[in-house]
């Protein structure tokens, strides 16, 4: 990575770390259950003091997602959620809320939009980076270079199966922060946040000085505290939030976010 590059996302996270023991990132599948519901979710996130929100751009073949998010992607597509609607929502949210916004999506969306146009649209929208789980660093050279020209961070993934050499390679290519995956598998399942996660995060820490986000299986305030104790800088909550909304509606969703946010103090 170009050493003169300076990440506004990383700087923002560092600033937010003052006065908080761990930062909080949440997730919305744009268009699911509806664009109006998304807005209500975002209001609740802002209210709870969420630091970063992943806006997932729906894709028909979401291979890194578990059943709940697969269904959310497919229902958003069935409702006709378009790129334009996606960016409209992100633009409104960036203007209105104080959290940072990153895109989460699959590489075909980037490829079909064209890497240059993709980066330009994210930057215009006020987004700060993107997570593309099916784009390994070997294939990401062009996109990641363009991203930094637009002031965007490609947020890379580190996983427990990666060798130290691979973690170091990912570390060399990363900026903004890292998405550390707490366990094998796909999104949306319980994780045993035991000592193995601690040793995994220590391996990640050796590979990069950037903030470490921990995701996959963070579902409660207790999990957020465990993430903090293991040395994560950012607790990432995805499926559990969607589940709270599906099961209990806006109020349960808001209560869920606030209970997790309370553990970040």
């Amino acid at each position: 990575m170009n050493t003169t590059y300076s990440s506004t996302l990383e700087a923002s996270l560092r600033k937010r770390q003052t006065g908080k023991s761990i930062l909080f990132m949440s997730h919305v599948v744009v268009g699911y259950p509806s664009l109006d519901a998304n807005w209500a979710m975002l209001e609740a996130m802002d209210d709870a003091g969420v630091d970063v929100v992943e806006f997932q751009l729906p894709f028909s073949e979401p291979i890194a997602d578990g059943p709940r998010f697969v269904k959310a992607n497919h229902e958003a597509i069935r409702a006709g959620t378009s790129w334009q609607q996606y960016f409209d929502l992100a633009t409104r949210a960036a203007a209105r809320f104080s959290f940072e916004i990153v895109l989460m999506g699959y590489y075909n969306s980037v490829f079909r939009m064209g890497p240059e146009r993709f980066c330009a649209r994210l930057a215009e929208t006020g987004m700060k980076g993107f997570i593309v789980p099916d784009l390994p660093v070997e294939e990401a050279g062009e996109l990641n270079g363009l991203a930094r020209e637009h002031g965007l961070d490609p947020i890379l993934t580190m996983t427990p199966t990666n060798s130290p050499a691979r973690l170091a390679e990912i570390g060399r290519n990363a900026s903004g922060f890292l998405y550390c995956v707490a366990r094998t598998g796909v999104t949306g399942r319980q994780t045993d946040l035991s000592s193995e996660v601690g040793s995994f995060l220590r391996r990640c820490r050796e590979a990069t000085p950037l903030p470490l986000g921990l995701g996959f299986g963070i579902r409660s305030a207790e999990n957020v505290r465990q993430a903090r104790e293991h040395g994560a800088d950012l607790a990432i909550v995805g499926t559990a939030g969607t589940q709270a909304w599906e099961e209990g509606g806006p109020e349960a969703y808001s209560r869920f976010l606030k209970s997790l946010a309370a553990a970040t103090a």
């Binding site: 890194a64 390994p136 060798s163 990912i170 094998t184």
Partner: peptide, 12 residues
């Protein structure tokens, strides 16, 4: 062609 795989499967 190529290999567009989640990082979890890199070593596999």
């Amino acid at each position: 062609g190529g290999a567009f795989i989640p990082e979890m499967l890199h070593e596999t």
